[in-house]
Computed example of a mutant assay.
Amino acid sequence: MGLPVLVVDDSTLARRLLINALPEAWDVEISQAANGTDAVTAYREGRASVMFLDLTMPGMTGFDVLETVRSEGLDSFIIVVSADIQPEAKARVKALGAVAFIDKPISSAKLLPVLKEYGLYE
């Protein structure tokens, strides 16, 4: 069984683009969530050793997900993938425990160095 990876975005297209940007040889088991509530559920079920998280979603935002995961122990590598590139947003996600912030649109060129930096992919 591969590494549990969760892709969280309210946009089906954005989730598909992110999944397509993942390295083909990476041994992962991918789950998807279209909102923050489903993301937290998947996290609690152990399906998010690595989580790619959008910030702007209706209902429970990415910030809310980060706060919840942090309050429950934060044992997931959370990489925020968002179009919200304001310095305040980047600082806030780091303070809440995200390991990295990748600007949308996602690409393999942006994603691979982050995965390598954290030892998630060689």
Rank of each mutant, 00 (worst) to 15 (best):
F63I: 07
F63S: 01
A109P: 05
A25C: 02
F63H: 05
R92K: 13
G97H: 07
A48L: 13
V99F: 00
A89M: 04
S31I: 08
M60E: 10
D75R: 10
P105T: 05
L53D: 05
L74E: 05
A95V: 01
S71L: 01
V81N: 05
S71F: 00
R47T: 07
A34Y: 14
M51L: 09
Y43V: 02
T56A: 11
Q32I: 13
D84T: 09
Q32F: 09
F77H: 12
V69K: 00
G97E: 08
M57H: 05
L74D: 09
N35E: 15
A100C: 04
S71N: 04
D84L: 13
V69P: 00
V81G: 07
K94L: 07
G62H: 05
Q32H: 12
A109N: 11
V81L: 03
R92P: 04
L96C: 03
D38L: 15
A89R: 06
D75T: 07
A89D: 08
A91H: 10
Q32W: 08
A42K: 15
F63Q: 00
L55A: 09
G59P: 04
K90N: 04
V81H: 06
A39Q: 14
A83Y: 08
V50D: 12
G59A: 01
A91Q: 12
R70S: 08
E67W: 00
G36T: 14
W26G: 07
K104V: 05
